[in-house]
């Protein structure tokens, strides 16, 4: 099952599902330290959801260094 993350809405939907957090578009660009309710476990859930959605392996080492959800999207969708 591969759903391309073409629109910001797709990515937001995936984020909400993976984390259970009520995120909005602004939170995608917020630093993790400023993201209410965020913890490292969400990151792990997000990685598995991204891999399911894109059908590709996500470089976890890079994801761990990202500071925002948008950076993670960029890493996951980079060719």
């Amino acid at each position: 099952m591969t759903t391309p993350l073409t629109t910001p809405e797709d990515y937001l939907a995936l984020l909400r599902e993976a984390t259970g957090l009520d995120l909005d578009e602004a939170s995608v660009h917020r630093d993790f330290d400023a993201l209410a309710g965020w913890d490292s476990l969400h990151l792990l859930k997000l990685v598995s959801s991204l891999e399911r959605a894109t059908g590709r392996r996500v470089p976890v080492g890079q994801v761990l260094q990202a500071r925002t959800l948008d950076e993670i999207r960029a890493i996951a969708t980079a060719a």
């Binding site: 490292s40 476990l41 990151l43 792990l44 990685v47 598995s48 976890v60 080492g61 761990l64």
Partner: peptide
Amino acid sequence: NEPRMASYA
């Protein structure tokens, strides 16, 4: 387990 999750987290 998931080896990357085991290693990184």
